[in-house]
Design a protein around this nucleic acid. Structure first.
Length: 296
DNA sequence: CTTATTTGACCCAA
DNA sequence: TTGGGTCAAATAAG
C-alpha cells in the first residue's frame, strides 16, 4: 500500500482512478461469468464479445498502471544472462545451439539442467487486493513456493506468450492473509506480446501526438530513450523490418529461433501505427453489429 | 492427442 | 549454507 515510493503529484490520483477502473472492469467480468453460468436460453449471445472487450479494457488498465508505476530508470534491463546463448531449453528451439558443445554430452537424463535463468529485474509494481484480480492477460503458472515468513504459498506466473512471442512479463501472487482474504500481486517486466485477443494492446508507450499516423524511426528511438521500458530487443534489431509474419495466427505454432523472436518484437512495434489508424473504424462496425442483434 | 498445472529437484544470489 | 526463484517430469484437464 503505502510502502511504494511516493509518486510525484497527481500520479497517485491517476493511479487511484486506474485501479478503480480496473476493479470495475473486473466486476463486469464477474457479472459476465455469473451470467454465463446461469445457462442463458438465448442462443446467440454477445457475451463473448463483451467479455473480450472487458479483457481489452483490463489490459489497458494494467498496462497503464505498469507504466505509471515503473520508475523510469534502468531497472528494466533484461536479465542477467547467466548463459546468454541459451534462450531456452528442449522443445522450444528448433535448432539446438549446435555451437555449444557442453550440453551435448549431458543428454543423460538426470544430469544438470541447461540455460537456467533467474530474474534480475526490479518489480514494476505491486498491489494488494481482496480478490484475485484479473488483469486481462493470460498467465501460465510455473511454480509455487512456501516462503519463510508467510503462511501461504506464493505462486509464480509468466506470460503465456513467453514461448511464442518471447514476452518477458511475469508476476507473483501471494496470499498474505485470510479472512478477509488478501492477495499481493507483484508484476515484473512488461508485456511485449500481442495476443490474438488483444492485437492492439502493446505496452510500448505511444505518445498521443504520434499515435495517429506513421511513426518515424526518430520517434521510435527517441521514445525508447525516455521510455521506462527500454526494450533491448528493439535496440538490437534496428535493421530491416522485413516482412516477418504478418498475421500472428499462422505464426502461433511455428516456433521461432531467437532471431525470429527479435524480428517479431520489431514487427509488433512497427505494425502498431497502422493498427491504430484502422482500429477505430473496425471497432465501430463491430459495435453496430452487436446493437443490431439486440434491436437497438 | 495438446496444453496447462502440480510438484520436488535444481540452481544461484545473498 | 540457505531461501527463494526456476525447471521440467509427472499429472491433470480439455
Amino acid at each position: 500500500m503505502e510502502n511504494q515510493n511516493q509518486l510525484p503529484n497527481g500520479k497517485n490520483a491517476m493511479e487511484e482512478e486506474l485501479i478503480r477502473g480496473r476493479d470495475m472492469a473486473n466486476q463486469i467480468l464477474e457479472v459476465l461469468a455469473h451470467d454465463k453460468d446461469e445457462g442463458s436460453t438465448n442462443s446467440k449471445s454477445v457475451l463473448p464479445f463483451v467479455e473480450d472487450l472487458v479483457r481489452k479494457v483490463l489490459c489497458s488498465f494494467t498496462n497503464t498502471l505498469l507504466l505509471l508505476n515503473s520508475n523510469n530508470d534502468v531497472s528494466y534491463e533484461v536479465v542477467a544472462s547467466i548463459a546468454p546463448k541459451h534462450v531456452s531449453s528442449s522443445t522450444s528451439s528448433p535448432k539446438l545451439e549446435s555451437s555449444d558443445e557442453t550440453c551435448k554430452s549431458l543428454m543423460n537424463t538426470k544430469t544438470r539442467r541447461r540455460g537456467y535463468k533467474r530474474k534480475s529485474i526490479a518489480p514494476a509494481w505491486e498491489k494488494d487486493s481482496s480478490i484475485l484480480i484479473e488483469d486481462g492477460y493470460v498467465w501460465r503458472k510455473y511454480g509455487q513456493k512456501m516462503t519463510l515468513n508467510a503462511k501461504y504459498l506464493r505462486s509464480y506466473y509468466r506470460c503465456s506468450h513467453k514461448n511464442d512471442q518471447g514476452c518477458q512479463a511475469m508476476k507473483q501472487v501471494q496470499r498474505i492473509q485470510d479472512n478477509p482474504p488478501l492477495y499481493r500481486t507483484t508484476y515484473y517486466g512488461h508485456h511485449t506480446c500481442r495476443s490474438p485477443l488483444n492485437p492492439e494492446i502493446i505496452l510500448e508507450p505511444i505518445s498521443p501526438s504520434a499515435s495517429s499516423t506513421l511513426l518515424s524511426f526518430n520517434n521510435s528511438f527517441q521514445r525508447q530513450q525516455e521510455s521506462p521500458f527500454p526494450s533491448s530487443l528493439l535496440a538490437s534489431t534496428k535493421q530491416e523490418p522485413v516482412e516477418v509474419i504478418q498475421d500472428y495466427h499462422s505464426a502461433q505454432n511455428q516456433l521461432s529461433s531467437p532471431e525470429d523472436l527479435l524480428l517479431y518484437d520489431y514487427d509488433f512495434f512497427f505494425d502498431y501505427s497502422k493498427r491504430v489508424a484502422s482500429l477505430s473504424s473496425t471497432e465501430t462496425v463491430e459495435f453496430e453489429n452487436v446493437y443490431e442483434q439486440f434491436g437497438f
